[in-house]
Amino acid sequence: MIKARIVVTLKNGVLDPQGKAIEGALGTLGFDGVSGVRQGKVFDVQVDSADRTKAEADLKAMCEKLLANTVIENYAIELA
């Protein structure tokens, strides 16, 4: 079994209104000097495979087909 963490974030240049709202809220709560907040998604996935190469290819396909909107989002796959 292979465990993976997939992190999906908006591409640079894509507006992130949720990140801006979080940034504003942090300022309101007294956390000064916070800027450039970007929000994203994290997926923890277990793949029943002993072949790391195949598992990584499958995880990439999952991202390309469902987990990430590759027009506006980047993704990174970390294998445990």
Rank of each mutant, 00 (worst) to 15 (best):
A57V: 06
D48N: 15
I77D: 07
D48Q: 12
F43R: 05
T28W: 03
Q46I: 12
A25E: 02
G33C: 01
L10D: 01
A76D: 13
V7T: 15
A4H: 00
T70G: 04
T28K: 14
E64F: 03
E73G: 06
M1K: 02
D44T: 06
V47T: 14
P17H: 02
Q39G: 09
L59R: 07
A55M: 12
P17L: 01
L67I: 10
D58W: 07
T70W: 08
E56R: 13
V14K: 01
M1T: 05
R5G: 00
G40F: 06
A25C: 07
V71M: 11
D48C: 09
G13E: 06
R52E: 15
A80N: 11
R52D: 13
D51V: 06
D48G: 06
F31M: 12
I77N: 05
K65N: 12
K60A: 14
T28R: 13
L79M: 15
D51I: 08
K41R: 13
I22P: 01
A57C: 04
A50K: 15
R52Q: 13
T28D: 09
G40R: 04
G40M: 08
Y75S: 02
G33N: 05
G36A: 02
L59I: 11
N12Y: 07
N12D: 12
E56Q: 14
P17A: 01
D58M: 13
T9L: 09
L67P: 08
D48L: 09
I2Y: 08
R5D: 00
Q39I: 15
G40C: 09
I6A: 00
V7D: 10
A61F: 12
C63E: 05
A68Q: 03
D44I: 04
L66N: 03
N69W: 09
G40S: 08
V14Q: 02
E78C: 05
Y75I: 01
D58C: 07
G24Q: 14
N69Q: 11
G24N: 15
D48I: 06
I72C: 06
S35K: 10
V47P: 11
L10W: 00
I6P: 00
Y75D: 02
A80W: 06
V14R: 04
E56V: 10
N74S: 08
A61G: 11
N74I: 01
G27R: 05
V71S: 09
K3N: 11
S49V: 10
E23Y: 00
V7R: 12
R52M: 12
E78R: 13
D44N: 09
